[in-house]
């Protein structure tokens, strides 16, 4: 069984630890990459080497971060080639209790808006797609 890649972008280290533990519990073969600074996460996405057998990568993205918000992150992400964009399955993971309706329309590539904390049951419900692209 091949490993699945997960990326977490959030400036809150505690949330990142929770995510890592929950994902590892959910998917023991999962490989979790944590970025506390969104700029570094973006760099990783940009330089990720794609090979033919690469399965989709699941990205959990926070919104409220000091130097670059989740929306700024997505604006940069939209500048990627389509082939690279298709590589990622993006979820917004936020502690906010707003409904983000305008953003849902503006960023249709976001698969779902999730409320913190990330739970194993949530991951099961997501029915994550790890097909090769």
């Amino acid at each position: 069984m091949s490993t699945h890649d997960y990326i977490i972008v959030d400036d809150d280290p505690v949330n990142n630890l929770i995510c890592k533990l929950v994902i590892e519990k959910f998917d023991p073969n999962g490989k979790v990459n944590v970025f506390q600074q969104p700029e570094k996460g973006l760099e990783f996405l940009k330089s990720f080497v794609i090979d033919d057998s690469q399965a989709k990568i699941v990205l959990f993205l926070d919104v409220n971060m000091p130097t670059m918000t989740g929306w700024d992150f997505l604006d940069e992400f939209l500048k990627f080639d389509e082939s690279r964009r298709n590589l990622f399955e993006i979820y917004i993971l936020t502690s906010a209790i707003e409904d983000f309706d305008p953003e849902k329309i503006k960023y249709p590539m976001v698969k779902a808006f999730l409320s913190k904390p990330l739970r194993k049951t949530t991951l099961v419900e997501l029915n994550l797609d790890f097909s090769t692209f």
Partner: peptide
């Protein structure tokens, strides 16, 4: 909400 979410998690 952020710390509360962490505490729950």
């Amino acid at each position: 909400r952020a710390p509360v979410a962490n505490i729950i998690g």
